[in-house]
């Protein structure tokens, strides 16, 4: 299995995981210029831009710890692009989230990338 296929597989797992928790996925692999967001999810008044991160084992740290500032900035830029085009979401509370899959373990945290 090549890397791209593998990524797809875990994005699918993440997607199911979010849906089970009441989120509606409105975009997958949203691309703005060269910047990409894995998932865009909506629940109540909240619009969440989600990055999916996979690690085989927690031996070297969990998925959360491997989202670096460059990745965060990319997601931020894509998010701003999305908001500029889809004006209907303007008044939503915009958050950024990470679905972290470490081996069998799966976890979703959301909050601010930047204060």
């Amino acid at each position: 299995m090549n890397k791209r296929a593998e990524g797809k597989k875990y994005e699918k797992i993440a997607r199911t995981y979010l849906q089970q928790r009441g989120w509606t996925i409105i975009e997958e692999n949203y691309i703005f210029g060269h910047k990409e967001v894995d998932l865009i999810a909506v629940k109540a008044e909240e619009l969440c831009f989600v990055e999916v991160k996979f690690r085989y084992s927690p031996a070297y740290g969990r998925g959360f710890e491997f989202v670096d500032s460059r990745k965060k900035n990319n997601v931020m830029t894509a998010a701003k692009g999305f908001l500029a085009k889809r004006k209907g979401y303007r008044n939503f509370n915009v958050t950024f989230g990470i679905v972290s899959i470490t081996g069998e373990e799966i976890d979703f945290r959301r909050g601010y990338f930047k204060w």
């Binding site: 908001l83 303007r90 008044n91 509370n93 915009v94 958050t95 909050g111 601010y112 930047k114 204060w115």
Partner: peptide, 8 residues
Amino acid sequence: SGGLTAFT
């Protein structure tokens, strides 16, 4: 308010 989350 709504919009990009922030705490300033």
